[in-house]
Design a protein around this nucleic acid. Structure first.
Lengths: 229, 229
DNA sequence: CCAAAAGTGTTCGGAATACACCCATGA
DNA sequence: TCATGGGTGTATTCCGAACACTTTTGG
């Protein structure tokens, strides 16, 4: 069709931003990086990329994650499109935001450092440019919902973890304190975690280490199993 | 900035589609209309509009709803962006889809007829053009979740309704049969509905008519109340 | 008179909650 | 030795699920 039509409608840019959640030092964290270009150059933002006309949005999310973590891909899911009409001199930008979960390890930390990225505390997110704080709020709500229905804790914690680490994670994500005994009861009833013979000896008293039973989870998921926290 | 940059990034069209849910004849319905232009002219699609550079997406959703219903606005909420790279000769199109709830009445039916729109049965949605069936599947999931946490039945039913109508709605949305006695217990426990002295005499035995207690719901919502179905 | 839809209570089991003390160890 | 964090069991309450019969009336 004619150029006039094309110019009237095909004139929006797509950006994708990723709210990357990680767990470190018994705390939930969200990754921010300094904005590379104008506008807001230097301000903290969520890791983001333009989506060009033949790019899939998901491939851009993967690129972001591959640059900042050491695994091909862990878990990402679209939140929604953020469409506020910003006064960007270049034109209209729509942000298709994702939330994603990664296990933080030394390699991840090294890559983040190389990119000047910073893991901000879940409860102390600084002011970010654009509407990125709004995106984070939305992502937190999504996390809250997901954590109740799917065992996503296992995507955030290291392979071997203590029950107390898991509980900390739930407490932060759900924003409430929980009773130790009731928490253990619920977790062990789910039969999704396996006790190992390893221990975490970093605290006062050694703590048993557990791992997630992925096989069992796959099987249960197929049968319409609900995690229900 | 330079035109080259602008052409490289600002070249996507935004469309919004609305999955409009209604309840009529004891059944949940979704509205489709015939596609007006190529491609797929004449095929059934979800009501949709281009979003131009200075339009808010929400305003376009309202336009769609105002054309097809008789109220300014009832309830709409973004689902997510559908971003598949379609072979549209014009270029890349991103669809920011919404789901919305309306009360079907004679005025609505008249407007729909005028627009050749059709209320399709929730469980017998025909093949639609583009990825609109995928959007509907996503909307159904959202409805399922919402119906459990918020009393959205009251946005779909007429002002006065019977308990059995409400139950039918829940049964379709949640895709399972429910026990009459348990259903009533749960609904009455919520204290969100008010008995009226009217009756629906269209069936064999007259049925009591109820209405939603909006005031009470507002108050409860403020206190972080959860509907929990 | 009978088919079809409205209306109504009780019992049971499982899950959520509340709650308090002992143990091991590093400082 | 004591402060810190790990680990454990029971009683109560509440909610969801299962379940069957009576009433009204249009055909």
């Amino acid at each position: 069709m004619d150029t006039e039509f094309k110019e009237a409608y095909f004139n929006t840019a797509i950006v994708t931003s990723v709210v990357l959640f990680g767990f470190e030092d018994d705390k939930l964290k969200i990754l921010t990086i300094p904005q590379e270009f104008e506008p807001f150059k230097g301000a903290s933002v969520l890791p983001s990329k333009y989506v060009r006309v033949n790019d899939s949005v998901e491939s851009k999310v993967k690129e972001i994650m591959n640059e900042l973590t050491d695994v091909d891909f862990e878990y990402a899911e679209q939140l929604k499109a953020f469409t506020k009409v910003f006064r960007n001199p270049l034109g209209r930008v729509v942000n298709i935001a994702f939330y994603a979960l990664v296990k933080i390890n030394d390699e991840v930390l090294a890559r983040c450092e190389k990119n000047n990225a910073k893991w901000e505390d879940y409860n102390q997110i600084p002011d970010l440019a654009f509407d990125h704080n709004e995106i984070i709020d939305y992502a937190k709500e999504r996390l809250k919902r997901r954590v109740k229905r799917r065992p996503i804790g296992f995507l955030l914690l290291p392979k071997y973890f203590t029950i107390n680490q898991l509980q900390k994670l739930y407490e932060i994500a759900l924003d409430r304190e929980m009773d130790k005994r009731n928490f253990r009861k619920k977790i062990f009833n789910s039969e999704l975690i396996i006790e190992t013979d390893m221990e975490d000896t970093s605290g006062r008293k050694a703590a048993k280490l557990y791992k997630f039973d992925e096989e069992r989870y796959e099987k249960l998921s197929l049968k319409g199993y609900d995690f229900l926290f």
